[in-house]
Structures are given as structure tokens and as C-alpha cells.
Amino acid sequence: MKRKCLLLAIAALTAFGCSFAQNRKALKINEVMVQNESSIVDEYGNRGAWIELYNSNFGPLEISSVYLTNDSTNKTLYPVPLGDERTKMGKRQMVIFFADADATKGTFHTSFTLEPGKDNWVGIYDADGLTLIDEVTIPASLPAGASYACVIDADGNETWEVRDGSTPTLYITPGGENTIRDTNRKVEDFAHYDPNGFGMAVMAMGIVFSALLLLCIAFKIISKIGATVSRQNKAKAQSKSESTAVTAKDVEHDSGEEIAAICMALYQHLNAHDTESTVLTINKVKRAYSPWNSKIYNLRQLPH
């Protein structure tokens, strides 16, 4: 019965974990265009409003059965259909949905459209139809042919900006990153602010020391608890056997050598025999030393 309960608990925990694994919080609305004048065309050659979604995760993300909507009172307006291979987004990838109010055209055509000249709210809801994953309101002032894009600034904050393609930093990028990075900013910062590496050395050594100090303190505490438990167990056993056993204080200071000597004596007493098990072979058994098969890993070696 106990075993069954344990198995059930494990199954429940696994299911609980799986429910988190399906979390699609990494899905973001990345760029939206309401009036498409010269941007991309769909597979039918039409230009229409489009919504770009972005998988900000570093793993793949399945987006089938999430809902896209432009009506906060109707959260399940357009369900992304099941059974389309293309709804499995790769890491850090984008997909484009055409908001042309004609879902019969395919998976990436929503059943609603975006209206120019007024605020357009767009939201993504999770498969339960209740959990809001991401939302954005595209301002009515968005010019025709311009997109409304999410950019991440130097401090990692998300901001939305109007992009009309007039400058290299304002390119409209359907299906691509909104911010093009050609260098690693972290590396640049270290090169600029810490050219001699002193800051890195101090920070990193501090972290390494902290990690190992934490471990050190944890094991000081654990060994103290262990010694207390061991003393208590010994005291219990002592009171039961009423023998002249070693005192609790001695137990704490039992060294490895003493334990090994006692074990050896017991082994010899209980398993005394004249012939050791042997293997006769004509093969050379000498093995070259290597840390990968060293006995030191397998045996606790103490000085003779």
C-alpha cells in the first residue's frame, strides 16, 4: 500500500512537472504591421496585415492550440490548428501570421484582421483559453507601411517602436531579429570597463570562494548533525546491550585506521581460511598507471 501511494505521488509530481514543461510564456509578439504597402506577401501573393511571433526560448516551442485574438472579450478567436509541422518553432525563431480574416487559407492566416486608423489590441492566450501569454496595443497613429516592433535595449528592457525602414536601425524585419547584433555586448563591456581583468578576477574569485564556502559551511553543519545522530544511536545501542561499549565522545574521534583495524580483525576472525582465491594466467597483468582507472578513486587509502 505504501509503495502504491509512493508511485502515485511520483506520478502526480511528474504530471505537475509536465504541466510546467508545457508553459508557453516564451512566446512573444515581436512585430506587427497593420497596413502592408510594400512588405512581404503571403503564399497567395496578397499583401495584408501581419503579426510576427517569436520563440524567445533556447529550445523548440510547439504553438499549436494557442489562441490569437484581437478581441479581449473573445479570447479564443483564432486557435492555431493542430497537426501542422510548421507550428513547432525552433529556438529563437519567428513565425508570421497574416491577419486577413480568412482562416481557410491555411494555418498562418487568422480569422480576424487589423483595422487601420484605430488602436488594435492583439493578444495570445494559452491552450486553456484563459492564460494570457503576451499582448500589445498597436497605436492608431501607426503610419501606413510602417510596423510596430519590440526591441530590447542595452539593459534588457523591452520597448516598442514604430519602424518605417527610413534608417538602418528602423528596418522592418518580418521573420528576422528586430535588433541585429554583430558583437557580444558582454565581451565588449568587459573589454571597455575592465581592460586589465582585475574586476573579473575579484568578482569571479569572490563567486568561486562563496560557492565553496557555502558548501564548506553546509558540510560543517551536516557533519555536526551526523555526529550528534551517531552519538544518539550509539547511546541507544549501548543502553540496549548494557555492554561496556566505547563512550560517545570516543565515537566522534574514531579514526579511519581504528575502524579499518576492527573490520580487519572481524574479517579474519569470521572468515579465517588458508587458501586465498587465485587466478592463474599466462597473460601479463601489469597495468600502466592512469588517473582514469586509478584505484585511488575506488579505495579509501590510508597509510600503513
Binding site: 581583468g197 582585475f198 573579473m200 574569485m205 570562494f209 565553496l212 564548506c216 559551511i217 557533519s223
Partner: peptide, 25 residues
């Protein structure tokens, strides 16, 4: 585990990494 303070020696020796980092820069 028997002598946790020895962990700090393992931490101190990592200065080799960050000393070399400074020289490499």
C-alpha cells in the same frame, strides 16, 4: 567531507585561472 575547510584551498587555486586571464588580456 571529513575536513570541509580544505574546500577553500581548491577555491584559492582557481586564482591561476583569473591571473592567467589578466595576463592574456
Amino acid at each position: 567531507i571529513a575536513n570541509p575547510k580544505l574546500m577553500l584551498i581548491g577555491a584559492a587555486a582557481q586564482f591561476g585561472i583569473f591571473g592567467a586571464y589578466m595576463v592574456a588580456l
